[in-house]
Design a protein around this nucleic acid. Structure first.
Lengths: 230, 230
DNA sequence: ACAAAAGTGTTCGCTTTACACCCATGT
DNA sequence: ACATGGGTGTAAAGCGAACACTTTTGT
């Protein structure tokens, strides 16, 4: 019962957004501390008597003003005792997805600035945050094929092509539009709306919505979403 | 920079073994503290300047004298601030698999006793450890179908029937022996040995070994182990 | 000879994959 | 009329699921 333990507990969030057909991560520029001026993941120390999930949500709100559409625990980083140069900090990382079109970023409290970065063009971040993002990206790639979380990155109503692009971009694969559409529709989880989106030239696209309630119900009954190799 | 944070970091291990065709969990009986006399998962506080993985391995060695054959981080429990009644403790849980036939359990240090329990006949444990085991079991079930970790629960050389039973027992499903064998062998990751095992009556069984090196190599090249619905 | 566990193939249906042309709109 | 992106079907191959009898040993 080591009541004088000198280890600190932090939370960090890998927040992904899908903007202009690119997968982006939300970073903040540190205002204070050793990492001052460096870009890092939103996050910070957990408060006494505060749960982990509450802590991430608080930090996200404080630092970026974002509301999440999907959230899960990612991994706890604590094998490298020097991942924070000053203190022994164990960080519980979260994977969160947002629909960025809904939000305007606002830097706040500890953050000098908050910005979206293309996940393939990241600067060198503070701490081990490049590694954390890598782990987050792997998880996202993995889950995309067996859980319908891609929808959490899109608008509520979206054209099929957005969904195709999202899968193609994130997984880095060419996808067969016909097969992809057929498979997606076979789950009977997409609802066609009356609306159309016309953008630039080309034929206008029907907009769809994802029926999350139905998915959750089916999932409980043993249904398994799976969109293989895309 | 909250240098007076009063949160403690612990690690706990869900150690599974497969004994007499039953999935078992390793528990220890607490010698000291509020949970004295209760069965709990092996684990304890992380030491200052100690990495998480090192901490679990140390605790396992101290408390049970076991050597692991598979080990991965499971989940970090820290949403419930009162999961430890006295202190705010965040616990990083690990999933570890061992081949119990190699080991003799020995209780040590904090442990009054160490014992295997049938995963379906658990007593009421201290803290939230029943829940942690539940999460561990879910993970094990999930991984069994898409990573070849079942082998880590078996002897190095095993008859096919052990593998069949393991999958059947853990997943709680009847498996078709012919299809299962065909699929397993199709990966070309099992090596037939010269040896046979005869036990009681019945035809003696060829013993196989799993070629882990080959699996790791193939996995890097994109190979995907998958044994669906068994 | 019988009981007990090991070992072995084939058929059917469904899912996956590969693949190319027409449609609706803007310029 | 042409450029741009949206929308659609079919055939072949591969995989998963169902299914029962023979072999080798111990008693």
């Amino acid at each position: 019962m080591d009541a004088k333990q000198k280890i600190f507990v932090a939370v960090d969030a890998v927040v992904f957004g899908y903007i202009e057909s690119k997968l982006q991560v939300l970073l903040i520029k540190q205002k204070y501390g050793v990492m001052k001026g460096k870009w890092v993941l939103p996050g910070g120390f957990v408060k006494d008597e505060e749960g982990l999930t509450d802590a991430v949500k608080r930090e996200l709100k404080e630092e970026t003003g974002i509301t999440v559409s999907y959230h899960e625990q990612l991994y706890t980083f604590g094998d490298d005792v020097k991942r924070d140069p000053r203190l022994h900090v164990v960080s519980v990382a979260y994977l969160t997805l947002v629909n960025p079109s809904k939000h305007t970023l606002k830097a706040d409290t500890d953050a000098e600035d908050a910005q979206w970065f293309d996940v393939n063009k990241l600067p060198k971040l503070g701490y081990d945050h490049n590694k954390i993002i890598k782990v987050g990206l792997e998880r996202l790639k993995g889950k995309l094929t067996y859980e319908p979380i891609g929808f959490d990155l899109l608008d509520k109503e979206f054209p099929f092509s957005d969904l195709e692009n999202l899968y193609g971009t994130i997984l880095g694969k060419e996808i067969d539009r016909r097969n992809f559409r057929k498979k997606m529709l076979s789950f009977d989880l997409l609802q066609e709306t009356e609306k159309m989106r016309k953008e630039g030239s080309g034929r206008p696209a029907k907009l769809f919505t994802f029926n999350k309630q139905k998915y959750k119900r089916l999932a409980k009954e043993g249904f398994h979403f799976e969109i293989k190799y895309v």
